[in-house]
Design a protein around this nucleic acid. Structure first.
Lengths: 187, 187
DNA sequence: CCGGCTAGGCTAACCGCGTTAGCTTTGGGG
DNA sequence: CCCCAAAGCTAACGCGGTTAGCCTAGCCGG
């Protein structure tokens, strides 16, 4: 029987296809192996197990997202950067709803994931460079921004009632422009 | 052998203990059965399976949370109500970190969970009764508030760097007071 | 007080998933 | 050309959810 010619990157590619098609729940070694056209245990020749595959996938996704976010805020500052990041965020989540579930939410034991998360964080951080805030204030502002954008991303599909979610997002973004003032006064 | 005297409520009680002790990941029929002092399949005499147990647990937790949130905003309105809800939210998450994971994030197929989620939503909704907003605007404001509070709750434990998370939360709450104006202008 | 019925417990067994062990074979490099 | 490491495979285990089917505790009517 011919070799499948796999490698870690190809396994992650297959995992991405599985996740895109079936959501985060569908990410199973059996499914990925099927997608690769290989028996399940064969995957262990390329990744150490499900946790490592998840970590590799997370790095891939975080970096993809970071690249888009970076492109969005390049050349902008202040409220314009904040808006650009917010819309890039929403766009990614809309375009890749299942992938977003792998964005880091708590501290990850995997150092690769932590590093990728830090790279992403630097982008959010950059938004507040244009404002006149102390270092501490920038940290708080970054956390608030992340929390709001993430919360919206998570709940987005769960909003009942007919009102336009795009309008809600605009309200959110407008609200967030108050971060600058709030960070200044609350610390 | 003597009967264990179980019933659905007692099973949910055991499930709560399991979740409190080991986190949402630990919620397994085997663990709950162990906590009940019973063999795993015996649970099926009281709950239909893991999904139903999860749903029952979610209802229990959402209602517990709703009760606390309701108590917090009773007798307050406007910014005071918003603050009270925000702090009740944060307090619950801090006190019951594992339980919070069962709060509804997307539409749940279980009608009981949906009903409980609606009861909770009504509380958040009530915060904006005191503001001068149209019905549509209240819906958007409610969504924004939920998104921000939820996002913070989720990311709370993941914040790196030493800065005080309580200060961050104060910045968040201050920022959210701008919802009124944003909802008014953006729609 | 007794017989029986039901509800609530049990064991056995199946399936799917992750994982490990150990065998086989491919195919590139000395 | 041969060899051997890498990359595939099958077999087997453990664990979790779930189903089937048995057995008995304990209430209820006679």
């Amino acid at each position: 029987m011919p070799r499948a010619g796999l490698n870690p990157a190809a396994v992650v590619d297959a995992a991405l296809r599985v996740v895109d098609a079936g959501g985060p729940e569908a990410l199973t070694l059996a499914a990925v192996a099927g997608e690769c056209g290989v028996a399940t245990p064969s995957l262990y020749k390329h990744v150490a197990g499900l946790p490592e595959l998840r970590a590799l996938l997370a790095v891939r996704i975080i970096d993809e997202f970071t690249a888009e976010a970076t492109a969005a805020i390049l050349g902008r500052s202040g409220d314009a950067a904040l808006e650009a990041l917010a819309f890039a965020y929403r766009d990614y989540v809309t375009r890749r709803p299942h992938r977003y579930a792998f964005m880091p939410q708590r501290i990850d034991p995997d150092p690769g994931v932590t590093a990728a998360a830090d790279r992403f964080l630097a982008v959010v951080f950059a938004v507040f460079k244009g404002y006149d805030l102390t270092d501490d204030q920038v940290v708080h502002a970054t956390r608030v921004l992340r929390a709001a954008l993430h919360g919206f991303a998570v709940l987005r599909t769960g909003f009942q009632m007919g009102q336009d979610v795009d309008v809600t997002y605009r309200v959110l973004v407008e609200t967030l422009k108050a971060i600058r003032g709030a960070a200044g006064s609350a610390s």
